[in-house]
Measured scan of single mutants.
Amino acid sequence: VSEWTEYKTADGKTYYYNNRTWESTWEKPQ
């Protein structure tokens, strides 16, 4: 699942961004 990158927002929430599909999600990808 290497295309997903984990980021943190300014208020400390974690989200995930897909470099291949430009998708972002709050849930941890499978």
Rank of each mutant, 00 (worst) to 15 (best):
Thr5Gln: 12
Tyr17Ile: 15
Tyr17Val: 15
Asn18Met: 01
Asn18Asp: 04
Lys13Phe: 08
Pro29Lys: 03
Glu23Tyr: 06
Trp4Phe: 04
Tyr7Trp: 12
Gly12Val: 00
Ser2Arg: 07
Glu6Leu: 02
Trp22Gly: 15
Gly12Arg: 00
Thr5Arg: 08
Asn18Trp: 02
Glu3Asp: 12
Tyr17Pro: 06
Ser24Arg: 07
Lys28Asp: 12
Thr9Glu: 04
Lys8Arg: 12
Glu27Asn: 07
Thr9Ser: 08
Trp26Arg: 03
Tyr7Val: 11
Asn19His: 10
Gln30Thr: 14
Tyr15Gln: 04
Thr14Trp: 04
Thr5Glu: 10
Tyr7Leu: 13
Glu27Val: 10
Glu6Ser: 03
Ala10Lys: 09
Tyr17Gly: 04
Trp22Pro: 03
Trp4Gln: 01
Tyr7Gln: 08
Gln30Ser: 14
Ser24Phe: 14
Gly12Met: 00
Gly12Tyr: 00
Lys28Ser: 11
Glu23Ile: 04
Asn18Pro: 03
Asp11Arg: 02
Asp11Lys: 03
Asp11Ile: 03
Thr9Asn: 06
Asp11Met: 03
Arg20Trp: 15
Tyr15Met: 12
Glu6Ala: 06
Trp26Leu: 09
Thr14Asn: 05
Thr25Trp: 13
Asn19Met: 08
Gln30Ile: 14
Glu23His: 01
Lys13Thr: 07
Ala10Leu: 08
Gln30Asp: 14
Lys8Val: 14
Glu23Thr: 05
Asp11Tyr: 05
Pro29Ala: 06
Lys13Pro: 00
Thr9Gly: 11
Asn19Tyr: 07
Thr9Ala: 07
Tyr7Lys: 13
Gln30Trp: 11
Gly12Ala: 00
Ser2His: 11
Thr9Leu: 06
Tyr16Ser: 01
Ala10Asn: 09
Pro29Thr: 04
Ser2Thr: 09
Glu6Tyr: 02
Ala10Val: 11
Val1Tyr: 15
Thr21Phe: 06
Thr21Met: 03
Lys28Val: 11
Trp4Pro: 01
Ser2Tyr: 07
Thr25Met: 12
Ala10Arg: 07
Glu6Lys: 03
Tyr16His: 01
Glu23Phe: 03
Pro29Asn: 06
Trp4Thr: 01
Arg20Ile: 15
Thr14Leu: 10
Lys28Thr: 07
Trp26Glu: 11
Val1Glu: 14
Glu23Gln: 04
Thr5Val: 15
Glu6Thr: 03
Trp22Ile: 08
Ser24Leu: 14
Thr25Ala: 13
Gly12Asn: 06
Tyr16Gly: 00
Val1Gln: 14
Val1Asn: 13
Glu3Ala: 08
Lys8Tyr: 09
Trp4Asp: 02
Lys13Cys: 14
Ala10Glu: 09
Tyr7Pro: 00
Ala10His: 11
Trp4Ala: 00
Trp22Phe: 15
Thr9Gln: 04
Lys28Glu: 09
Val1Asp: 12
Ser2Lys: 08
Tyr16Trp: 15
Thr25Phe: 12
Glu23Leu: 02
Trp26Gln: 10
Glu23Val: 06
Glu6Gln: 06
Tyr16Val: 00
Asn19Lys: 09
Tyr15Val: 09
Lys13Tyr: 11
Glu3Val: 06
Tyr17Phe: 14
Asn19Glu: 15
Lys13Gly: 06
Lys28Tyr: 09
Glu3Trp: 05
Lys28Leu: 12
Trp26Phe: 15
Gly12His: 01
Trp22Asn: 15
Val1Pro: 14
Asn18His: 11
Gln30Gly: 12
Gln30His: 13
Trp4Lys: 00
Arg20Gln: 15
Trp22Met: 15
Thr5Phe: 11
Pro29Val: 04
Tyr17Asp: 01
Val1Trp: 13
Tyr16Met: 00
Trp26Tyr: 13
Trp26Pro: 09
Thr9Tyr: 08
Ser24Asp: 08
Ser2Gln: 11
Tyr16Ile: 00
Thr14Lys: 08
Ser2Gly: 13
Thr21Gly: 03
Thr14Gln: 04
Thr21Ile: 05
Ser24Val: 15
Thr14Arg: 02
Asp11Val: 01
